[in-house]
Each structure stands twice: as C-alpha cells, then as structure tokens.
Design a binder for these strands. Structure first.
Lengths: 221, 221
DNA sequence: GACATGTCCAGAGTATGCAGTATCCGGGGC
DNA sequence: GCCCCGGATACTGCATACTCTGGACATGTC
C-alpha cells in the first residue's frame, strides 16, 4: 500500500468507475477551493458538467457528505460546506485524540518497511520545505501524519482517520507552512524509531497542541 | 435530541424515505442475526423483498458498508460481514481510545440536562439488568456509552463514534450481560457528575479494559 | 399593507431497462 | 483424472424517464 497516496478508497487501479472519477474530481475541486464553500452542488448540472448521469454523481456526493466536505438536506441540493471556528476546534480535538494514540501504537508496532516509508515521506517534506514549496510541504506533512496512523497497524483506526482526513487537508492547505513542523516531525520520527514512548508522548502532546478547551459556537471560518 | 435512540442519522421523523426504511430494516436484520454473516445481499432480491426498487436498496447497502456491517466488492453482491478476531481486537482498541477521551470530556463539559439523560439511561439499564432481561440490558448499556460520547459535546467525535457504533452493538448483542457492568457504569456516572477526572481516568481504563496488545491476524469470530 | 392561498418550478427520490463484467459449470484436450 | 477454455448465468454499474415534494412567487383577501 502506498500511504502517501491520498485516495484512501481506491480498489481498482486500472479501469476506474465513473462514480470514483466523479468523486475524485469533485473532491479535488472542493479542496482546491475552485468550488466555493456555500455553493450548491446540483445533481443534474454536475452530471452534465462531467458528462455522466446522475447516479454516479449521487454516489460521489454521498461520499463527500460522509467526508464532511458537503452538507446534505433532504430534497435539497448538496452545499459545499462552510467550516465554522467550532468545526475547526472539534476537528483539532478529535484529530489530537486519534493521532496521539497512533503515535504511541506506531512506536510499539512499526516494522522496518513501514518505518522506511515514513522516513521517505519525511524526507520529501523536508525537501519541499527547503525549496520553499508551501503546497507540497503541506501535502507531505499531511502524508506524514497519515503514514503514522498507517504504521499504527490498526485498519479500523486508519478507516476512521480517513473520514477526517479530507477535512484536515482542507484546513492545512489554507495555512502557511511553518518550518518548525519539519523539525518536530523529525524528532517524532526519531522517537518512533527508538520506540521511546515517554519522549514520544511529550513530543506528540506539543505537536498536536492539544488542550481540552472550551468549544465556542459557530463563527464562520 | 434523544441520545438513547439508536438511529443516529434520522432527520425526518414523520415521512420516511424508502432508502431510510430499507436501511433500518436491513441493519436490524443483520444486528439480530437473521441475516447471517457471509450471506449475500443481492440488490434485486432485496428490492423484491422490501417491495421497492433497487436504487434505495443500493443507498442502504452503501450505508451499511460504511458502518462496516457488509462488505462490498465492485460488480459483486454485498456480503454480510464476517468479523475476525482481529477485527474485534481493532474495534476494542479504537473504541477504548475514543470513549476514554469521551469520558474525560464529558466530565469537563456536561450540562444538567445531558447529565439527567445519562442518568435516565443508566436507570433503564439497571432496571433491565434486575429483571434479568439480557437483550434490553445490553441495549441500554450501549446507549449509556453513546450518551457519554454525546455528553462530551463534540459533534465530530459523536459522528466518528457513530461509524463504529453499529459494529459495537453487533458485538454486544452476542455477549451475555455481566451484572458488574451496571455497577461500573454507576461509578463512572458518579465520577462524571463529580467532575473527578483522576478517578474517572482510573475507572475508564478498567472499564474499557484497554491495554495495547498484539493484533493477531484473522481468525473467524 | 400584512397575511393566506394557489400555481409553478426546481430538484431530489424512485423505477426500469440495458450493457458490461465476474463467477460458475460443463466439455474437450492432454 | 486433471486442467484449460468457452459459454451461460448472475449481478452490479450506468442511463433515462417518471414522480413527488418543498419553496418561491404571484394573486387575492382581510
């Protein structure tokens, strides 16, 4: 498995189903912002745009809703999601819980090949950061976290991470890349490789910046 | 919101869409075991059974797949999932991580009405246990855990819990109810009510029986 | 001018038909 | 007797046509 591939749920690599293609296209459009938050996603229109029928579009939209990228109401067109500050806070909280555990499990369970993959991702991130390539660095950074979850060796945990992964990437691509991240990832990697759980716990807590804060309601983000 | 209702994703209570009904029926059949693990779920047949067309059935099956109750392969009929011992181990691990955090957050954030709801669920569980009603006790026990997650006040956490909730219930209904559970839940409730985080942490660790164990591969469960 | 009611329309929900693909089974060659 | 291959079968994936609902707008009424 290639952990650095974003598409978590691709089974067939050769011939791609129409619904899969629709999903990829729409997700990319939302993540890059070419479909703006709040804009409607009308089945018929989208079907015409992509040159296929409504059924695959329906499936894709359903999946996007599951990923939290669009919101669906009965008998109404799906709407590209507006994230509120509360949404972001909730996302960070959940993310911290899942990833923190992933770090610890990864340190216990890693096997050589997986660790190598992780290191490769880390190097890719470092390279991108050196070249000042904000977008690629952010992508590689997200890949790093995803690779850690993969390394934790729990498929269900990975599956759950997949459901928030899109949202995390949506957030990340809207932030500037901080060079500190590279260093922190390097330290985290070393701690995982050394299976040093105490150190890792401290590092992870800092890196995930987690504290149980008050969740304020709903400003638009 | 009624946290003790199983159906996490019901928006319309009055008129129910066909796909919703199909989902409810099929899920119930799987959870009760009247559809056996390994048995096929053929779109056409199921459509005839429920007296509707294939499209709503498709949607329902997709949702069941998302809940982990059936497995889908492209161009093949969906199959009611066989859980392996590894699946169960993974489920317990993830569940422990999520719920542990939920307990702590619930203790920090509960508000009177939510706490009352939780107590009501607890009482319902105690009643069922006293009457020796295994099934109802298990249901109420699952409701208790779900109510705690709800009390944690993080919608995203609740959403993620929802994705494993069906699987947990599948497991629970296949176990005999241990009377200890009632007592442990009572203690957990008291600790939440008292916002005693240290005590709660100890209790939760015991109750969720979590230790990072080796995940062995794949025996049928 | 505010509110009720009727009409129209946009768009999701559903039904059905068709095409393509994976599996199964039987026959022929080795 | 075993393996390979081809056809039949079973089923999903996709397309198209139809139905139903909720909302907007206009018209009428108080």
């Amino acid at each position: 498995m290639s952990t650095h591939d974003f598409d978590l749920a691709d089974y067939a690599e050769g011939s791609e189903a129409e619904s899969e293609r629709a999903l990829r296209v729409l997700r990319a459009q939302i993540l890059t912002g070419s479909r703006e938050p709040g804009s409607k996603l009308v089945e018929r229109e989208t079907a015409v745009e992509l040159g296929i029928s409504r059924i695959p579009i329906r499936e894709a939209i359903k999946q996007l809703a599951a990923e939290g990228l669009v919101v669906q109401q009965p008998r109404m067109p799906a709407v590209v999601r507006q994230f509120t500050s509360r949404d972001v806070a909730e996302l960070n909280e959940v993310r911290a819980v899942v990833e923190r555990q992933a770090f610890l499990l990864a340190a216990r369970r890693w096997e050589p090949e997986g660790l190598q993959e992780l290191e490769a991702v880390l190097n890719r991130q470092a390279m991108a950061a050196e070249h000042g390539d904000n977008v690629d660095a952010q992508l590689a950074s997200a890949d790093f976290h995803e690779a850690v979850v993969y390394l934790a060796g729990n498929d269900l945990l990975m599956e759950m991470y997949g459901t928030i992964s899109s949202r995390l990437r949506w957030l990340m691509t809207r932030r500037t890349y901080s060079p500190d991240v590279t260093n922190e990832h390097r330290k985290l990697f070393d701690a995982i490789a050394a299976r040093d759980l105490e150190l890792l716990e401290r590092l992870a807590t800092v890196h995930l910046k987690w504290k149980p804060e008050v969740l304020e309601p709903t400003e638009d983000f």
